[in-house]
């Protein structure tokens, strides 16, 4: 049982790290601000999601797990709204 939990943690955290990697590569490779914004908000949010998922088995109980999930939800909400704000600004300023 313990072993299975650890396997799941390793798998999910690795996936999360992979998405962070992809996001960073996107940040470095994408040509302009708006495309980089895509990389940042989408890939990193997913990466965080997988890390949270991976940590769920290690969490002490249901409440700790839910706490982790709620943090992810906060991050998602922030990412979704802030990315819109940045996109607007970029479009208005003509830098995109």
């Amino acid at each position: 049982m313990n072993f299975a939990r650890d396997i799941m943690t390793i798998a999910c955290v690795s996936t999360g790290a992979f998405f962070f990697l992809a996001g960073t590569v996107g940040l470095l490779r994408f040509p302009d601000t708006l495309t980089r914004l895509h990389a940042l908000t989408k890939a990193d949010n997913l990466g965080l999601g997988f890390v949270v998922l991976g940590l769920l088995p290690q969490a002490g109980g249901l409440r700790d797990g839910l706490k982790l999930m709620s943090i992810w939800m906060f991050a998602l909400l922030a990412g979704a709204t802030v990315s819109q704000l940045i996109a607007r600004t970029v479009r208005r300023s003509g830098a995109g």
Binding site: T24, L37, G47, V51, V52, A78, G79, I86, T89
Partner: peptide, 28 residues
Amino acid sequence: SILRGPGDTDRMMAAQLIGTAGIAVLLL
């Protein structure tokens, strides 16, 4: 990559980046 710019609009993303990656690091 973000701080290098070129524009200020890139730099606006810095806090966002820390908000996701930093949280991941903290949780781990």
